[in-house]
Amino acid sequence: MVTAATSSSSNAGSYTTIKETVTFEREIKKSKFIAIAGPISDEQSAFSFLSQVRDPRATHNCWAYKVADQFRSNDDGEPSGTAGKPIQSAIDSSGIDRVMVVVIRYFGGIKLGTGGLVRAYGGVASECLRNATTCLIKSKVPMGVEVPFDLIGVLHHQLQSFQVENIRQDYETGKDGIVMISFIVDFDQVEKLEDAIKANCCRELVFYKR
């Protein structure tokens, strides 16, 4: 059973994800559970990751993933709500985003019951994520500002101090003596950069953000 949900805990400015694929294995009442977590960017990359790590020989390949405020999970034949949702809860509790966790089960002959399955899938998923190396990713914002020619040097000094990326100049603005300078800046630096530019240029400037 596939389920989808929306989370309200996403942060548009930055997020924590895992650096690389990590695996955790545990045997529970003769069933082998292997949790595999990997970084993803969207639904397409999630299903690509799933196709790479799932084992068609296994009894179940259960999974969940989170991308921003979107969750999806799948019980893959286990009783409804006993596999995908516990994996999803483990992801949510970890605070990690843009991640998928696949838990592969090889049935060992002993049934675990509903509660046992929830603990097994949620537990191995949590341990897997705890073992992962994480990193903070800052979102980037494309910006632009129109400035007179005589302020280009002042503006570039401010842009360099904020370590912006992809600086470009466009003189075809249709306005005499005005150049459009576009760049990409960290989300959490947008307001500070605007304030610094205004303070140092001492002019009314037009900013553009996407």
Rank of each mutant, 00 (worst) to 15 (best):
F149W: 01
S182F: 00
S73I: 13
F183N: 08
L159M: 02
K30F: 12
A68Y: 08
E146T: 01
S7N: 11
K192Q: 11
A90Q: 07
V67G: 09
I87K: 07
L159E: 05
K19S: 08
I91P: 02
K30Y: 14
E20Q: 05
P79M: 15
G115N: 03
P79G: 10
K19N: 07
S31A: 15
I104K: 07
L205E: 07
G123Q: 09
D186F: 04
A5E: 03
V22W: 05
F24K: 03
D75K: 11
Y121D: 06
R130D: 00
E165N: 08
Y106E: 09
K138T: 05
F183D: 08
R57K: 01
G113A: 06
A35D: 02
F33V: 06
D176Y: 15
D76S: 05
R54H: 08
F24L: 03
L205F: 00
I152H: 05
H157K: 10
Y171P: 00
F49K: 00
R210W: 03
Y121P: 01
K111N: 14
L155K: 04
L151Y: 04
A68V: 03
E194W: 01
H156P: 05
R26F: 12
K85E: 11
Y106D: 03
Q163H: 07
R105I: 05
L193Y: 09
Q158E: 14
K198Q: 06
N74H: 05
F71W: 05
I184H: 08
M100I: 15
A199K: 14
L112P: 09
Y106K: 03
R72A: 12
V101M: 06
K29N: 10
K19Q: 04
